[in-house]
Design a protein around this nucleic acid. Structure first.
Lengths: 255, 255
DNA sequence: CGATTTTAGAGGTCAGACCACTTCAAGTAT
DNA sequence: ATACTTGAAGTGGTCTGACCTCTAAAATCG
């Protein structure tokens, strides 16, 4: 399974490291959670300076492919894939992303993910979801703990969708909203009602009612959005937009 | 407007650089396309070594926030935002993303984007789209050039959707498929038919027929998917999945 | 046996020299 | 004059090697 991928930018040595790791990952030598050799050793074996090696590793870490632990070692990332949690936040600042847009993206992604989960979810997923729902009801008194299971529930749905790419995207988007979500949950919204909704969503997915799953998830998230006061603002008639996003001058496709 | 964002990993100095840049971006001092000071100067002004500064800059570059040009300088990224074009490719290799999953994600995103574009698109977008459609018809004989306008057309729709986040995600996904798309287009599919479909999509969006826009985009992309033979494979009854994606737990690394 | 200290190993930072690429202006040939 | 060549300045890329900090596990002490 080839892939080429231009990887336009970056310097020679950096790419050398990235490609080396990529190769190891693709041929199965490196699996999620594995530890890679110490920088000094790896650098020597690749015939490059430790500094350059570090640049490459840093590049991979920035994209969430590697996890560096000071004093311990460098590992291949495991757990739910994401497109680099920090990126959305930075890119967002750069292009002036709005909260309601974040929510819109999340609603769109998750409602469709729920539909896919209803269509393809397996027993193991149903079981895991049921458990999280139960935990939510059990944690109605503890907002912090409730949120953990809430996140888990949505994550399981993403996995159940059978499309890890969409799951990764969702993970990236939701993790960017984690801070605000936490604050909201802490000032005690009606967790009981929230738990009920999750249960309904679970049921729709279990009974493979795709349409209902999508609808319920959509409703659930819109409610959460309202609770955080992040609805899309009124349409402005004219005048300067909050942040112009002009058609972007030429930008010819790559050669 | 604060933002916190945990940014779990990464070392002190790296974050120092990242946050410094982030601050400059957020307070408007740094805008897309701007050039930042030379490494030597910036390093001195931040009171850190050039090596550390470079680590931070590299981190930002990996996420697509900065663009480094050897011998020229380092700039804030401009053009359509993306979540780090390389990341999806790497993460994909790591988690065994399939081509059909990529396409499914793209179809889901773009069909909804088309619907949003139909709902919110402005005259400027309509005009730009019309132009690209015209260019496509004009380039029916030149696959390479056709593709450029094809990409542009979809990109404009993404902009017209009014949600830069979804647009950025789409950009990330589609750019990962660029290679294969190019190969396909080059072995001359019926470009005329393709152009016709784009025109229909354009019309649906212009007339603000959201449902039709979504349907047509969906149809258009499924057709493209079939042309590249990337449909979702038959459902397997039982046995081991191509790549298990179990709930993911511990992290253990064995020395 | 349990708490504390030591130590080995891994990543983080630093300093300064030198290499490679881009630009662009001065110089030279036609 | 015009066009090609050359060279210097500026900027990112890489290298070396020493030293710092953090973690985890082994050694030691109470």
């Amino acid at each position: 399974m080839p892939h080429s991928s231009p990887e336009s930018n970056n310097s020679h040595r950096t790419m050398q490291v990235v490609n080396h790791v990529r190769a190891l990952i693709e041929n199965g030598t490196l699996q999620p959670g594995d530890k890679i050799p110490p920088e000094r050793d790896l650098a020597r074996s690749l015939k490059i300076s430790r500094a350059s090696l570090r640049t490459g590793i840093g590049y991979l870490a920035a994209m969430g492919v590697m996890k560096i632990r000071h004093g311990v070692g460098t590992f291949v990332a495991d757990g739910p894939p994401d497109l680099g949690k920090a990126s959305l936040s930075l890119i967002g600042a750069l292009h002036g992303f709005q909260s309601w847009q974040m929510f819109e993206a999340r609603i769109l992604l998750e409602s469709n993910l729920a539909a896919l989960a209803a269509e393809r979810g397996k027993e193991e997923h149903h079981a895991a979801m049921a458990e999280e729902v139960a935990e939510m009801f059990a944690a109605i008194k503890s907002p912090i703990e409730y949120l953990i299971h809430d996140v888990m529930f949505h994550r399981i749905i993403a996995q159940a969708s059978g499309n890890p790419i969409l799951a990764a995207i969702m993970e990236t988007v939701t993790s960017s909203m984690y801070d605000k979500r936490r604050k909201t949950v802490e000032r005690a919204t009606d967790l009981r009602e929230s738990a009920e909704m999750h249960r309904e969503i679970y049921r729709a997915i279990r009974t493979r009612n795709t349409g209902e799953a999508r609808r319920l998830m959509d409703e659930h998230l819109r409610m959460a959005q309202t609770a955080q006061g992040m609805e899309r603002p009124m349409e402005r008639k004219a005048g300067a937009p909050t942040r112009s996003s002009k058609p972007a001058k030429s930008r010819a496709a790559k050669p």
